[in-house]
Write a protein that binds this DNA or RNA. Structure first.
Length: 202
DNA sequence: CATGGGATTGACT
DNA sequence: GTCAATCCCATGC
């Protein structure tokens, strides 16, 4: 498995979000297969890039293939892969991994969890498990400490679930969330997360 | 300079 | 189902 190069990310962000399923995130001795992603684009209000170029969003508008890591709710670090051409604010949020290497280290970082399916089943959980933090913001995902590797040869996604993104209040109806349908390591859809989309659809 | 709101999680009722 | 923890940063005065 080789690191994904900038060309992989320099495409429509929704395509990249789908194609990142099955790829591997590595940091040190820990690694996991991506099983859930979400796409964000400057053209819609749920994206941080919607406000334009600021100190915070600068990495989003930078060259593709770098990390955008930010603090959420004052507690968690969330990992994104910057996409599309330089100057366009777009990124894929990595929402869940299936742990493959360094399970003991992950358990140590995560504290007591019921079972290994909960080690990386959420965007805040996986960064904690892999030891990814704000210091990795704007680092190169092909050469830096945190890397994303291509799918293994012959890997097939099987069933992919497409649906609305989780935990947002604006543009909640856009179906830009992708997950491996049968995978046990995806994040649990927040039951309390706005039924607005469903109501609107019904 | 003060304020308010999150791309969440885990504990508790 | 409900709610608190906690901090960066965009916004407005």
């Amino acid at each position: 498995m080789r690191p994904l190069r900038a060309d992989f990310y320099r495409r429509p962000v929704v395509e990249v979000a789908r194609d990142l399923l099955g790829c591997t995130v590595v940091h040190g001795a820990t690694a996991g297969i991506i099983v859930e992603t979400e796409a964000y684009h400057e053209g819609e209000p749920a994206s941080h890039a919607f406000v334009g170029l600021t100190a915070r969003t600068r990495p989003l508008f930078g060259p593709p293939g770098r990390a955008y890591v930010y603090r959420s709710y004052g507690i968690h670090a969330l990992l994104n892969a910057v996409c599309e051409a330089e100057g366009v604010g777009a990124a894929v949020l990595i929402r869940a991994l299936e742990p493959t290497r360094g399970l003991e280290e992950m358990r140590a970082r995560r504290g007591a969890v019921a079972d290994d399916r909960e080690l990386c089943s959420g965007p805040g959980k996986l960064t904690q498990a892999l030891g990814v933090g704000l210091e990795h913001n704007d680092t190169d995902l092909a050469r830096g400490a945190v890397r994303i590797l291509a799918r293994v040869e012959g890997w097939e996604p099987g069933g992919v679930t497409v649906g609305p993104r989780v935990g947002i209040t604006r543009a909640a109806e856009v179906p830009w969330r992708f997950a491996l349908a049968a995978n046990e390591h995806v994040s649990r859809p927040r039951p309390g997360a706005r039924r607005a989309a469903a109501v609107r659809a019904g």
